[in-house]
């Protein structure tokens, strides 16, 4: 499937205490087509916890989650 090799749309939320990584993801995701892949960059621990939890509750797909040098990189695909 084409979407499996799709380049992620990067949301650079590093240094964002407010609104933070998850809110930035929601902002972008609600206007994007179903199937769009996002990669959120966040330095906020709360977002790193919240993004996977919200993704599951809202019916989207958590593709991957990594952390290096204090930056969390979380990939999410819009599913509905």
């Amino acid at each position: 499937m084409a979407q499996e090799t799709q380049e992620p749309h990067v949301i650079d939320a590093r240094g964002s205490f407010c609104p933070g990584g998850l809110m930035e993801l929601i902002k972008e995701l609600r206007l994007a087509p179903v199937g769009t892949l996002f990669e959120v960059w966040s330095t906020d621990q709360g977002s790193a916890r919240d993004i996977p939890a919200w993704t599951q509750r809202a019916g989207h797909e958590l593709v991957s989650s990594t952390a290096a040098d204090g930056v969390y990189k979380i990939q999410v695909r819009r599913m509905r």
Binding site: C18, L22, R49, D50
Partner: peptide, 13 residues
């Protein structure tokens, strides 16, 4: 609130 705490600023939440 849209995220998993009561405000986006964690200390405020």
């Amino acid at each position: 609130y849209p995220i998993g705490r009561l405000h986006s600023l964690e200390p405020v939440a």
